[in-house]
Design a protein around this nucleic acid. Sequence first.
DNA 1: CAGTGTAATGTTATACTATATCATTAGTTT
DNA 2: AAACTAATGATATAGTATAACATTACACTG
Lengths: 170, 170
Amino acid sequence: MNTMDARDFIQIAKNICEKTGSRLTETRQHMLEVLFTVETPKSAYELTDDYNRLVNSPIMAMSVYRILNFLASIRLVHHLHSINKYIICKHPIGRSEDQVPLFLICTSCQQIEEVAIAADLIYALSDHAESRGFISAGSQIELNSLCKKCQSNIHQHSPGDFNGQNPTNK
Amino acid sequence: MNTMDARDFIQIAKNICEKTGSRLTETRQHMLEVLFTVETPKSAYELTDDYNRLVNSPIMAMSVYRILNFLASIRLVHHLHSINKYIICKHPIGRSEDQVPLFLICTSCQQIEEVAIAADLIYALSDHAESRGFISAGSQIELNSLCKKCQSNIHQHSPGDFNGQNPTNK
DNA sequence: CAGTGTAATGTTATACTATATCATTAGTTT
DNA sequence: AAACTAATGATATAGTATAACATTACACTG
């Protein structure tokens, strides 16, 4: 289903930049390639290391933050706030206009999945926003969840466990 | 509509703690009162200051974090990851079982609103999660939005502006 | 194609957010 | 009272992100 390579993705990025009057510089392109390679969500500092391992021209964390912000602003990267990590956003590919990305985050092992959902589902939420005078901006949503693997582990520990303090224990 | 006072809220908190076998200690109760008083989302360090201004028994940030995590675990506080702030969660009051809280966050001025939405809307999202083997945990959702005030300002600046880098500019 | 303005990056410093760890206190149980 | 566990105190440090200013690269204009 997602049999595209980094090259295709870069091309999409270029098109977006052209449309918006921004530039896909070499550094930004390299960063996209790194993100495409690593796939899993990573912190800005982890990505700095990855970049310096994979690209033959050193970069500093400050620049990484700037580039990540830029890539997020054109929706090619998503900042997963709940775990302070960044991940490439593949939704531009093979997806119709009436779909938006939903990010499932396993609160236990931090595995994430990007799934496409009907934009209508977001609109339903947006309607509530509008009734309060808010306009929904940036439809990407994070949903805290538990992946399959961690669901089975959960029976040994306990549900809703936060950093060792578990009110549901007795 | 929300004409309840801190006292009612504390009582609710006590009930929850009793059910779960945890304790609503004096410090935790004071923190709830502080949260109830300030109303707006605040960082843990801001809340530390607030606490020390309002309560006659000093507290340190480390303890504040622990207490916020505890209160979040019993759903009386919501951690707004996208802005790294905490806010009291009033959903337990005057709300039916089939409703869950949705947090609207103005990405410009960080004003937030908690609105009740039909749990069905979340279930719709959860269904997508389940199809990928995820189980939705912690139904509280943050929706990035723009409040009314910032919507009018946005015409002077530009939409989607991230830290001065705006690809939609030309 | 030199001159000018803006976008992007480099560089250094620092602010802000959060957790680890160990010691101590308080509450509960037997 | 002794023993166990939950909660907090206290100190240190890790991790995340931005501020501010200098420099370079690019794009446009005359």
